[in-house]
Design a protein around this nucleic acid. Sequence first.
RNA 1: GGCGCCGUAGUGUAGCGGUUAACACAUCUGACUUUCGAGUCAGACAUCGUGGGUUCGAAUCCCACCGGCGUCCCCA
Length: 490
Amino acid sequence: MRTRFAPSPTGFLHVGGLRTALYACALAKQNGGQFLLRIEDTDQERNVPGAIEQIIHSLQWAGLAPTEGVVLQDGQVAQAGAKGPYIQSERLEIYRKHADLLHERGYAYPCFCTKDRLEAMRKQQEAAHQAPMYDRHCLQLSTEEIDKKLAAGEPHVLRLKIPRDEVISFEDDIRGLVTFRGDTIDDQVLLKSDGFPTYHLAHVVDDHLMEIDVVLRGEEWLSSLPKHLLLFQYFGWTPPRYAHVSLLLNKDKSKLSKRQNSVSVDEYRNKGYLPEALINFLALLGWNPGTTQEIFTLEELIQQFSLDRAQKAGAIFDLEKLDWLQGQWMRKLPLQDFADRIREDVGEQYSAALTDPKFLERVALIQERIIFFHEAPDMLSYFYQEPAVNMDVILSAKQKVTTDILATILDLLTKTLEGMADANWTADGIKNALEQALTDSGFKRGQLLWVLRAAVTGRDYSPGAYEVAASVGKEETVKRLQNVNALIKS
RNA sequence: GGCGCCGUAGUGUAGCGGUUAACACAUCUGACUUUCGAGUCAGACAUCGUGGGUUCGAAUCCCACCGGCGUCCCCA
Protein backbone atom coordinates (compact mmCIF):
# COMPACT_ATOMS: atom_id res chain seq x y z
CA MET A 1 0.00 0.00 0.00
CA ARG A 2 1.36 3.37 -1.02
CA THR A 3 -0.18 6.68 0.06
CA ARG A 4 0.99 10.21 -0.14
CA PHE A 5 0.60 13.64 1.34
CA ALA A 6 0.92 16.38 -1.25
CA PRO A 7 0.84 19.91 0.15
CA SER A 8 1.67 23.14 -1.60
CA PRO A 9 4.57 25.02 -0.07
CA THR A 10 2.52 28.13 0.55
CA GLY A 11 3.10 28.37 4.29
CA PHE A 12 2.87 26.37 7.46
CA LEU A 13 1.33 22.95 7.69
CA HIS A 14 -2.40 23.26 8.24
CA VAL A 15 -4.07 21.16 10.95
CA GLY A 16 -6.49 19.84 8.35
CA GLY A 17 -3.49 18.81 6.29
CA LEU A 18 -1.98 17.10 9.31
CA ARG A 19 -5.14 15.08 9.78
CA THR A 20 -5.17 14.02 6.14
CA ALA A 21 -1.50 13.12 6.42
CA LEU A 22 -2.22 11.12 9.56
CA TYR A 23 -4.93 9.09 7.86
CA ALA A 24 -2.79 8.52 4.80
CA CYS A 25 0.22 7.57 6.86
CA ALA A 26 -1.80 5.18 9.02
CA LEU A 27 -3.21 3.45 5.98
CA ALA A 28 0.19 2.92 4.43
CA LYS A 29 2.00 1.90 7.59
CA GLN A 30 -0.59 -0.54 8.86
CA ASN A 31 0.19 -2.66 5.83
CA GLY A 32 3.90 -2.07 5.93
CA GLY A 33 3.64 0.24 2.95
CA GLN A 34 5.14 3.57 2.04
CA PHE A 35 3.93 7.01 3.00
CA LEU A 36 5.47 9.61 0.76
CA LEU A 37 5.61 13.37 0.62
CA ARG A 38 5.25 15.19 -2.67
CA ILE A 39 5.50 18.93 -3.00
CA GLU A 40 2.99 20.62 -5.28
CA ASP A 41 4.67 23.86 -6.21
CA THR A 42 3.10 24.47 -9.59
CA ASP A 43 1.87 27.92 -8.69
CA GLN A 44 5.02 29.96 -8.83
CA GLU A 45 3.39 33.00 -7.35
CA ARG A 46 2.28 31.29 -4.20
CA ASN A 47 5.44 29.47 -3.30
CA VAL A 48 6.89 30.58 0.00
CA PRO A 49 10.60 30.11 0.65
CA GLY A 50 11.27 27.83 3.58
CA ALA A 51 7.79 26.37 3.54
CA ILE A 52 8.97 22.90 2.56
CA GLU A 53 11.29 22.69 5.57
CA GLN A 54 8.52 24.02 7.78
CA ILE A 55 6.04 21.43 6.61
CA ILE A 56 8.43 18.55 7.06
CA HIS A 57 9.44 19.82 10.50
CA SER A 58 5.82 19.85 11.55
CA LEU A 59 5.24 16.37 10.18
CA GLN A 60 8.28 15.11 12.02
CA TRP A 61 7.16 16.73 15.24
CA ALA A 62 3.86 14.91 14.90
CA GLY A 63 5.63 11.63 14.22
CA LEU A 64 4.56 11.44 10.59
CA ALA A 65 7.87 11.84 8.84
CA PRO A 66 7.58 10.51 5.31
CA THR A 67 9.65 7.49 4.33
CA GLU A 68 9.83 8.40 0.68
CA GLY A 69 9.72 11.53 -1.44
CA VAL A 70 10.75 14.89 -0.09
CA VAL A 71 12.57 14.50 3.20
CA LEU A 72 14.93 16.39 5.44
CA GLN A 73 18.56 15.32 5.56
CA ASP A 74 20.67 17.20 8.10
CA GLY A 75 18.12 19.95 8.00
CA GLN A 76 18.29 20.22 4.23
CA VAL A 77 15.52 19.40 1.80
CA ALA A 78 16.39 16.20 -0.03
CA GLN A 79 14.61 13.52 -1.99
CA ALA A 80 14.51 9.81 -1.41
CA GLY A 81 12.97 7.07 -3.50
CA ALA A 82 12.93 5.64 -6.99
CA LYS A 83 9.85 7.36 -8.34
CA GLY A 84 11.09 10.93 -8.18
CA PRO A 85 11.57 13.68 -8.56
CA TYR A 86 8.94 14.40 -5.92
CA ILE A 87 8.83 18.14 -6.36
CA GLN A 88 6.49 19.05 -9.16
CA SER A 89 8.48 21.97 -10.50
CA GLU A 90 11.20 19.42 -11.30
CA ARG A 91 8.79 17.32 -13.35
CA LEU A 92 7.78 19.85 -15.99
CA GLU A 93 9.01 17.72 -18.89
CA ILE A 94 6.94 14.78 -17.72
CA TYR A 95 3.79 16.86 -17.61
CA ARG A 96 4.44 18.39 -21.01
CA LYS A 97 4.85 14.97 -22.60
CA HIS A 98 1.62 13.76 -21.12
CA ALA A 99 -0.17 16.90 -22.12
CA ASP A 100 1.02 16.45 -25.67
CA LEU A 101 -0.29 12.94 -25.64
CA LEU A 102 -3.74 14.14 -24.70
CA HIS A 103 -3.64 16.79 -27.36
CA GLU A 104 -2.63 14.28 -30.01
CA ARG A 105 -5.40 11.95 -29.01
CA GLY A 106 -7.96 14.71 -29.20
CA TYR A 107 -8.78 14.78 -25.50
CA ALA A 108 -7.39 18.25 -25.03
CA TYR A 109 -7.17 21.42 -27.07
CA PRO A 110 -5.18 24.61 -26.98
CA CYS A 111 -6.92 27.78 -25.91
CA PHE A 112 -5.67 31.26 -26.75
CA CYS A 113 -8.30 33.23 -24.91
CA THR A 114 -7.01 36.14 -22.90
CA LYS A 115 -7.81 36.55 -19.24
CA ASP A 116 -9.82 39.62 -20.13
CA ARG A 117 -12.00 37.70 -22.50
CA LEU A 118 -12.55 34.94 -19.96
CA GLU A 119 -13.47 37.41 -17.32
CA ALA A 120 -15.94 39.20 -19.56
CA MET A 121 -17.45 35.87 -20.50
CA ARG A 122 -17.91 34.89 -16.88
CA LYS A 123 -19.51 38.20 -16.02
CA GLN A 124 -21.98 37.75 -18.81
CA GLN A 125 -22.81 34.22 -17.76
CA GLU A 126 -23.28 35.31 -14.21
CA ALA A 127 -25.58 38.12 -15.26
CA ALA A 128 -27.61 35.60 -17.24
CA HIS A 129 -27.71 33.30 -14.19
CA GLN A 130 -25.79 30.61 -15.97
CA ALA A 131 -23.10 28.47 -14.44
CA PRO A 132 -19.78 30.08 -15.34
CA MET A 133 -18.08 27.75 -17.80
CA TYR A 134 -15.64 28.09 -20.64
CA ASP A 135 -17.63 28.67 -23.83
CA ARG A 136 -15.33 26.56 -26.00
CA HIS A 137 -14.47 29.54 -28.12
CA CYS A 138 -11.10 28.05 -29.07
CA LEU A 139 -12.52 24.63 -29.79
CA GLN A 140 -13.98 26.13 -33.00
CA LEU A 141 -10.53 27.04 -34.26
CA SER A 142 -9.43 25.21 -37.40
CA THR A 143 -6.22 23.22 -37.44
CA GLU A 144 -4.65 25.87 -39.68
CA GLU A 145 -5.56 28.66 -37.33
CA ILE A 146 -4.18 26.75 -34.39
CA ASP A 147 -0.93 25.94 -36.15
CA LYS A 148 -0.55 29.56 -37.18
CA LYS A 149 -1.06 30.85 -33.68
CA LEU A 150 1.24 28.22 -32.26
CA ALA A 151 3.93 29.05 -34.79
CA ALA A 152 3.57 32.73 -33.94
CA GLY A 153 4.21 31.81 -30.34
CA GLU A 154 0.91 33.13 -29.06
CA PRO A 155 0.47 32.43 -25.36
CA HIS A 156 -1.98 29.65 -24.76
CA VAL A 157 -3.14 26.98 -22.34
CA LEU A 158 -4.23 23.41 -22.90
CA ARG A 159 -7.77 22.54 -21.93
CA LEU A 160 -9.36 19.22 -21.21
CA LYS A 161 -12.26 18.45 -23.56
CA ILE A 162 -15.02 17.17 -21.36
CA PRO A 163 -17.53 14.80 -23.00
CA ARG A 164 -20.75 16.57 -22.23
CA ASP A 165 -23.06 13.64 -22.77
CA GLU A 166 -21.39 11.32 -20.29
CA VAL A 167 -22.30 10.53 -16.72
CA ILE A 168 -19.37 9.80 -14.45
CA SER A 169 -19.81 7.71 -11.34
CA PHE A 170 -17.27 6.63 -8.80
CA GLU A 171 -17.19 4.72 -5.56
CA ASP A 172 -15.35 6.91 -3.05
CA ASP A 173 -13.85 5.06 -0.09
CA ILE A 174 -15.50 7.39 2.39
CA ARG A 175 -18.53 8.81 0.63
CA GLY A 176 -19.68 5.84 -1.39
CA LEU A 177 -21.14 6.33 -4.84
CA VAL A 178 -20.84 9.84 -6.26
CA THR A 179 -22.20 10.84 -9.65
CA PHE A 180 -21.54 13.77 -11.97
CA ARG A 181 -23.03 14.83 -15.28
CA GLY A 182 -20.56 15.72 -18.00
CA ASP A 183 -22.43 18.81 -19.11
CA THR A 184 -21.88 20.45 -15.75
CA ILE A 185 -18.13 20.08 -15.85
CA ASP A 186 -15.91 22.81 -17.20
CA ASP A 187 -13.14 22.32 -19.75
CA GLN A 188 -10.42 22.51 -17.18
CA VAL A 189 -7.03 24.05 -17.92
CA LEU A 190 -4.37 21.35 -17.76
CA LEU A 191 -1.29 23.23 -18.81
CA LYS A 192 -0.83 26.90 -18.02
CA SER A 193 0.71 29.37 -20.40
CA ASP A 194 3.88 29.40 -18.33
CA GLY A 195 4.35 25.72 -19.10
CA PHE A 196 3.43 24.59 -15.58
CA PRO A 197 0.68 22.05 -15.15
CA THR A 198 -2.39 22.74 -13.07
CA TYR A 199 -3.15 20.56 -10.08
CA HIS A 200 -5.45 18.37 -12.13
CA LEU A 201 -2.89 17.21 -14.65
CA ALA A 202 -0.06 16.98 -12.16
CA HIS A 203 -2.11 14.99 -9.67
CA VAL A 204 -3.16 12.37 -12.19
CA VAL A 205 0.24 11.97 -13.77
CA ASP A 206 2.10 11.88 -10.49
CA ASP A 207 -0.17 9.60 -8.56
CA HIS A 208 -0.10 7.15 -11.43
CA LEU A 209 3.65 7.29 -11.94
CA MET A 210 4.32 7.17 -8.20
CA GLU A 211 2.01 4.16 -7.94
CA ILE A 212 -0.26 5.58 -5.29
CA ASP A 213 -2.99 3.17 -4.22
CA VAL A 214 -5.29 5.49 -2.32
CA VAL A 215 -5.56 9.23 -2.73
CA LEU A 216 -6.61 10.93 0.50
CA ARG A 217 -7.51 14.58 0.21
CA GLY A 218 -9.98 17.11 1.50
CA GLU A 219 -13.61 17.13 0.48
CA GLU A 220 -13.10 20.39 -1.37
CA TRP A 221 -11.64 18.25 -4.17
CA LEU A 222 -14.72 16.17 -4.63
CA SER A 223 -16.16 18.30 -7.41
CA SER A 224 -12.93 17.99 -9.38
CA LEU A 225 -12.98 14.22 -9.16
CA PRO A 226 -14.72 13.59 -12.53
CA LYS A 227 -12.01 15.54 -14.33
CA HIS A 228 -9.37 13.38 -12.76
CA LEU A 229 -11.24 10.21 -13.56
CA LEU A 230 -11.53 11.27 -17.17
CA LEU A 231 -7.81 11.93 -17.32
CA PHE A 232 -7.03 8.47 -16.02
CA GLN A 233 -9.34 7.07 -18.65
CA TYR A 234 -7.72 9.07 -21.47
CA PHE A 235 -4.26 8.01 -20.44
CA GLY A 236 -5.44 4.42 -20.36
CA TRP A 237 -4.65 4.06 -16.68
CA THR A 238 -6.54 2.50 -13.82
CA PRO A 239 -7.45 5.22 -11.34
CA PRO A 240 -6.41 4.84 -7.71
CA ARG A 241 -8.92 4.54 -4.91
CA TYR A 242 -10.03 7.92 -3.63
CA ALA A 243 -11.06 8.94 -0.13
CA HIS A 244 -12.38 12.46 0.27
CA VAL A 245 -11.96 13.41 3.89
CA SER A 246 -14.58 15.60 5.55
CA LEU A 247 -13.69 19.20 6.20
CA LEU A 248 -12.58 20.75 9.47
CA LEU A 249 -14.97 23.54 10.37
CA ASN A 250 -15.10 26.81 12.30
CA LYS A 251 -17.71 27.24 15.02
CA ASP A 252 -20.07 28.69 12.41
CA LYS A 253 -19.58 25.61 10.24
CA SER A 254 -17.61 27.33 7.53
CA LYS A 255 -14.36 25.80 6.36
CA LEU A 256 -11.71 26.13 9.10
CA SER A 257 -10.03 29.47 8.62
CA LYS A 258 -7.28 31.60 10.05
CA ARG A 259 -9.76 34.33 10.85
CA GLN A 260 -11.54 32.26 13.43
CA ASN A 261 -9.00 29.68 14.55
CA SER A 262 -5.37 28.82 14.81
CA VAL A 263 -4.84 26.67 11.76
CA SER A 264 -1.15 26.01 11.59
CA VAL A 265 0.34 23.03 13.34
CA ASP A 266 3.16 25.27 14.45
CA GLU A 267 0.83 27.48 16.43
CA TYR A 268 -0.38 24.51 18.45
CA ARG A 269 3.16 23.39 19.00
CA ASN A 270 4.11 26.87 20.21
CA LYS A 271 1.15 27.02 22.52
CA GLY A 272 2.57 23.97 24.24
CA TYR A 273 0.39 21.21 22.92
CA LEU A 274 1.96 17.79 22.92
CA PRO A 275 2.10 16.15 19.50
CA GLU A 276 0.42 13.11 21.02
CA ALA A 277 -2.54 15.24 22.08
CA LEU A 278 -2.94 17.00 18.75
CA ILE A 279 -2.70 13.78 16.78
CA ASN A 280 -5.11 12.04 19.11
CA PHE A 281 -7.57 14.90 18.78
CA LEU A 282 -7.31 15.16 15.01
CA ALA A 283 -7.74 11.43 14.58
CA LEU A 284 -11.04 11.54 16.42
CA LEU A 285 -12.35 14.43 14.35
CA GLY A 286 -13.88 12.47 11.54
CA TRP A 287 -12.98 8.97 12.56
CA ASN A 288 -13.91 6.62 15.38
CA PRO A 289 -12.59 3.21 16.35
CA GLY A 290 -15.99 1.60 16.88
CA THR A 291 -15.09 1.11 20.54
CA THR A 292 -15.16 3.51 23.48
CA GLN A 293 -11.41 4.01 23.46
CA GLU A 294 -10.54 7.70 23.47
CA ILE A 295 -6.82 7.81 24.11
CA PHE A 296 -4.69 6.63 21.24
CA THR A 297 -1.00 6.52 20.66
CA LEU A 298 0.18 6.99 17.10
CA GLU A 299 0.95 3.29 16.97
CA GLU A 300 -2.58 2.41 17.98
CA LEU A 301 -4.00 4.77 15.40
CA ILE A 302 -1.87 3.24 12.70
CA GLN A 303 -3.10 -0.19 13.69
CA GLN A 304 -6.75 0.64 14.05
CA PHE A 305 -7.46 3.28 11.43
CA SER A 306 -9.81 2.34 8.64
CA LEU A 307 -11.59 4.38 6.01
CA ASP A 308 -14.93 2.70 6.49
CA ARG A 309 -15.17 4.26 9.94
CA ALA A 310 -14.38 7.72 8.61
CA GLN A 311 -17.08 10.34 8.92
CA LYS A 312 -18.78 12.01 5.96
CA ALA A 313 -19.93 15.17 7.69
CA GLY A 314 -17.55 18.01 8.48
CA ALA A 315 -16.34 18.35 12.06
CA ILE A 316 -16.19 21.55 14.06
CA PHE A 317 -12.71 22.15 15.40
CA ASP A 318 -13.58 22.59 19.05
CA LEU A 319 -10.61 23.08 21.37
CA GLU A 320 -12.26 21.87 24.58
CA LYS A 321 -11.68 18.24 23.90
CA LEU A 322 -8.18 18.95 22.65
CA ASP A 323 -7.36 20.53 26.00
CA TRP A 324 -8.73 17.54 27.87
CA LEU A 325 -6.63 15.24 25.73
CA GLN A 326 -3.66 17.48 26.33
CA GLY A 327 -4.15 17.04 30.10
CA GLN A 328 -4.39 13.29 29.68
CA TRP A 329 -1.15 13.17 27.76
CA MET A 330 0.61 15.45 30.25
CA ARG A 331 -0.29 12.97 32.96
CA LYS A 332 1.22 10.14 30.96
CA LEU A 333 4.65 11.74 30.75
CA PRO A 334 7.22 10.00 32.94
CA LEU A 335 7.78 12.22 35.99
CA GLN A 336 11.43 12.79 35.22
CA ASP A 337 10.66 13.86 31.62
CA PHE A 338 7.95 16.13 32.84
CA ALA A 339 10.28 17.70 35.40
CA ASP A 340 12.99 18.19 32.80
CA ARG A 341 10.59 19.96 30.49
CA ILE A 342 9.61 22.55 33.10
CA ARG A 343 12.75 22.91 35.20
CA GLU A 344 14.32 25.74 33.24
CA ASP A 345 11.10 27.67 33.02
CA VAL A 346 10.42 27.37 36.73
CA GLY A 347 14.03 28.14 37.58
CA GLU A 348 13.82 31.37 35.67
CA GLN A 349 11.23 32.63 38.10
CA TYR A 350 12.36 30.79 41.21
CA SER A 351 16.07 30.06 41.13
CA ALA A 352 15.75 27.94 44.27
CA ALA A 353 13.89 25.39 42.18
CA LEU A 354 17.06 24.61 40.23
CA THR A 355 18.74 23.11 43.28
CA ASP A 356 15.60 22.01 45.08
CA PRO A 357 16.00 18.42 46.35
CA LYS A 358 12.22 18.21 46.62
CA PHE A 359 11.65 19.35 43.06
CA LEU A 360 10.47 16.00 41.75
CA GLU A 361 8.08 15.46 44.64
CA ARG A 362 6.53 18.88 44.11
CA VAL A 363 6.31 18.48 40.38
CA ALA A 364 4.50 15.20 40.85
CA LEU A 365 1.85 17.08 42.80
CA ILE A 366 1.03 19.44 39.94
CA GLN A 367 1.38 16.98 37.09
CA GLU A 368 -2.04 15.61 37.95
CA ARG A 369 -3.66 18.98 37.37
CA ILE A 370 -1.63 20.73 34.73
CA ILE A 371 -2.68 21.27 31.12
CA PHE A 372 0.25 23.25 29.72
CA PHE A 373 3.91 23.35 30.66
CA HIS A 374 3.83 27.12 30.91
CA GLU A 375 1.47 26.90 33.86
CA ALA A 376 4.12 25.17 35.94
CA PRO A 377 5.95 28.19 37.45
CA ASP A 378 2.70 29.63 38.69
CA MET A 379 1.46 26.31 39.99
CA LEU A 380 4.69 25.79 41.93
CA SER A 381 5.10 29.35 43.13
CA TYR A 382 4.09 28.80 46.77
CA PHE A 383 6.84 26.26 47.25
CA TYR A 384 9.43 28.93 46.62
CA GLN A 385 7.78 32.08 47.79
CA GLU A 386 5.38 33.02 50.54
CA PRO A 387 2.02 33.53 48.89
CA ALA A 388 0.20 36.80 49.14
CA VAL A 389 -2.91 35.78 51.00
CA ASN A 390 -6.10 37.72 51.24
CA MET A 391 -9.35 37.10 53.08
CA ASP A 392 -11.29 36.33 49.90
CA VAL A 393 -9.37 33.11 49.53
CA ILE A 394 -9.27 32.15 53.20
CA LEU A 395 -12.96 32.59 53.79
CA SER A 396 -15.33 30.22 52.06
CA ALA A 397 -19.08 30.23 52.27
CA LYS A 398 -19.28 26.76 50.81
CA GLN A 399 -16.91 25.32 53.39
CA LYS A 400 -18.49 27.39 56.15
CA VAL A 401 -15.31 29.22 56.98
CA THR A 402 -16.52 32.54 58.37
CA THR A 403 -14.82 35.50 59.99
CA ASP A 404 -16.06 34.70 63.49
CA ILE A 405 -14.59 31.21 63.64
CA LEU A 406 -11.47 31.77 61.59
CA ALA A 407 -9.28 32.68 64.53
CA THR A 408 -10.31 29.52 66.37
CA ILE A 409 -9.57 27.36 63.35
CA LEU A 410 -6.18 28.96 62.87
CA ASP A 411 -5.38 28.48 66.50
CA LEU A 412 -6.35 24.83 66.39
CA LEU A 413 -4.34 24.22 63.22
CA THR A 414 -1.29 26.01 64.55
CA LYS A 415 -1.32 24.23 67.88
CA THR A 416 -1.89 20.83 66.36
CA LEU A 417 0.79 21.16 63.73
CA GLU A 418 3.33 22.84 65.96
CA GLY A 419 3.01 20.02 68.42
CA MET A 420 3.88 17.38 65.84
CA ALA A 421 7.20 15.60 65.95
CA ASP A 422 9.39 16.41 62.96
CA ALA A 423 9.59 12.75 62.08
CA ASN A 424 5.81 12.65 61.61
CA TRP A 425 5.77 15.57 59.21
CA THR A 426 4.49 13.71 56.18
CA ALA A 427 1.20 13.89 54.35
CA ASP A 428 -0.04 10.87 56.27
CA GLY A 429 1.31 12.13 59.56
CA ILE A 430 -0.38 15.48 59.13
CA LYS A 431 -3.59 13.75 58.19
CA ASN A 432 -3.55 11.67 61.35
CA ALA A 433 -2.81 14.61 63.58
CA LEU A 434 -5.57 16.66 61.98
CA GLU A 435 -8.11 13.84 62.14
CA GLN A 436 -7.50 13.69 65.85
CA ALA A 437 -7.91 17.42 66.26
CA LEU A 438 -11.05 17.21 64.15
CA THR A 439 -12.86 14.73 66.33
CA ASP A 440 -11.92 16.68 69.43
CA SER A 441 -13.02 20.04 68.09
CA GLY A 442 -16.26 19.40 66.28
CA PHE A 443 -15.26 21.28 63.16
CA LYS A 444 -15.97 19.84 59.74
CA ARG A 445 -13.02 18.41 57.93
CA GLY A 446 -13.42 20.89 55.11
CA GLN A 447 -13.22 23.82 57.47
CA LEU A 448 -9.76 22.88 58.64
CA LEU A 449 -8.43 21.74 55.33
CA TRP A 450 -9.69 24.69 53.39
CA VAL A 451 -8.01 27.12 55.73
CA LEU A 452 -4.80 25.13 55.86
CA ARG A 453 -4.58 24.80 52.09
CA ALA A 454 -5.50 28.42 51.45
CA ALA A 455 -3.02 29.68 54.02
CA VAL A 456 -0.16 27.63 52.63
CA THR A 457 -0.86 28.21 48.93
CA GLY A 458 -2.76 31.47 48.85
CA ARG A 459 -5.11 30.12 46.24
CA ASP A 460 -8.45 28.47 45.94
CA TYR A 461 -7.18 25.74 43.67
CA SER A 462 -4.12 23.59 44.30
CA PRO A 463 -3.01 20.07 45.19
CA GLY A 464 -4.22 18.65 48.50
CA ALA A 465 -3.63 20.38 51.81
CA TYR A 466 -1.71 17.49 53.41
CA GLU A 467 0.68 17.07 50.51
CA VAL A 468 1.32 20.77 50.14
CA ALA A 469 1.90 21.31 53.85
CA ALA A 470 4.15 18.26 54.04
CA SER A 471 6.27 19.54 51.20
CA VAL A 472 6.46 23.14 52.40
CA GLY A 473 7.69 22.02 55.79
CA LYS A 474 6.48 22.40 59.36
CA GLU A 475 8.11 25.65 60.19
CA GLU A 476 6.98 27.34 57.01
CA THR A 477 3.45 26.00 57.32
CA VAL A 478 3.08 27.36 60.80
CA LYS A 479 4.53 30.65 59.68
CA ARG A 480 1.99 30.97 56.92
CA LEU A 481 -0.83 30.20 59.31
CA GLN A 482 0.41 33.00 61.48
CA ASN A 483 0.50 35.32 58.50
CA VAL A 484 -3.21 34.80 58.16
CA ASN A 485 -3.65 35.45 61.83
CA ALA A 486 -1.87 38.75 61.43
CA LEU A 487 -4.11 39.55 58.50
CA ILE A 488 -7.22 39.17 60.65
CA LYS A 489 -5.95 41.63 63.15
CA SER A 490 -4.99 44.27 60.65
C1' G B 1 -27.47 30.56 -9.68
C1' G B 2 -25.57 25.31 -11.63
C1' C B 3 -23.49 20.99 -9.75
C1' G B 4 -21.93 18.01 -5.59
C1' C B 5 -21.69 16.58 -0.53
C1' C B 6 -23.69 16.59 4.27
C1' G B 7 -27.65 16.93 8.42
C1' U B 8 -28.20 12.13 15.88
C1' A B 9 -27.55 16.48 22.94
C1' G B 10 -23.40 22.72 22.93
C1' U B 11 -19.04 19.76 20.55
C1' G B 12 -16.85 15.04 18.64
C1' U B 13 -19.00 10.41 17.67
C1' A B 14 -21.96 5.25 18.24
C1' G B 15 -26.25 3.39 16.04
C1' C B 16 -27.30 -0.27 9.84
C1' G B 17 -35.82 -2.11 10.99
C1' G B 18 -37.61 -3.51 17.60
C1' U B 19 -32.36 -0.02 22.63
C1' U B 20 -35.13 3.56 28.61
C1' A B 21 -31.26 6.51 21.53
C1' A B 22 -24.96 4.71 23.67
C1' C B 23 -19.87 6.88 24.69
C1' A B 24 -16.37 11.05 25.40
C1' C B 25 -15.55 16.37 26.11
C1' A B 26 -18.08 20.81 27.87
C1' U B 27 -22.06 22.76 31.11
C1' C B 28 -25.30 22.09 35.41
C1' U B 29 -27.04 19.15 39.88
C1' G B 30 -26.19 15.63 43.97
C1' A B 31 -23.10 12.20 46.87
C1' C B 32 -18.35 10.46 48.44
C1' U B 33 -12.76 10.82 48.95
C1' U B 34 -8.53 14.78 51.56
C1' U B 35 -10.20 21.08 51.19
C1' C B 36 -10.33 22.68 45.41
C1' G B 37 -12.17 24.31 39.42
C1' A B 38 -8.33 17.45 40.95
C1' G B 39 -10.39 12.10 41.68
C1' U B 40 -14.64 8.47 42.07
C1' C B 41 -19.83 7.68 41.55
C1' A B 42 -24.91 8.97 40.35
C1' G B 43 -28.01 12.28 37.54
C1' A B 44 -29.70 16.49 34.09
C1' C B 45 -29.18 18.12 28.93
C1' A B 46 -31.49 15.00 21.97
C1' U B 47 -38.52 17.80 18.56
C1' C B 48 -32.51 11.78 15.73
C1' G B 49 -33.20 18.92 10.08
C1' U B 50 -38.86 19.08 8.54
C1' G B 51 -43.06 16.76 6.27
C1' G B 52 -45.04 12.62 4.02
C1' G B 53 -44.81 7.36 2.78
C1' U B 54 -43.49 1.84 3.44
C1' U B 55 -43.96 -1.34 7.93
C1' C B 56 -47.15 -4.40 13.47
C1' G B 57 -42.77 -1.31 14.39
C1' A B 58 -38.21 3.85 11.36
C1' A B 59 -32.72 7.70 13.79
C1' U B 60 -32.28 3.38 10.60
C1' C B 61 -35.76 2.06 4.05
C1' C B 62 -38.31 5.49 0.06
C1' C B 63 -39.91 10.45 -1.59
C1' A B 64 -40.25 15.63 -1.17
C1' C B 65 -38.79 19.86 1.09
C1' C B 66 -35.60 22.81 4.24
C1' G B 67 -30.93 24.07 6.04
C1' G B 68 -25.54 24.04 6.09
C1' C B 69 -21.16 23.52 3.54
C1' G B 70 -18.03 22.78 -0.72
C1' U B 71 -17.09 23.90 -5.75
C1' C B 72 -17.68 26.57 -10.30
C1' C B 73 -9.58 30.61 -11.08
C1' C B 74 -3.96 29.91 -16.36
C1' C B 75 -5.04 28.45 -6.78
C1' A B 76 -4.13 24.12 -4.68
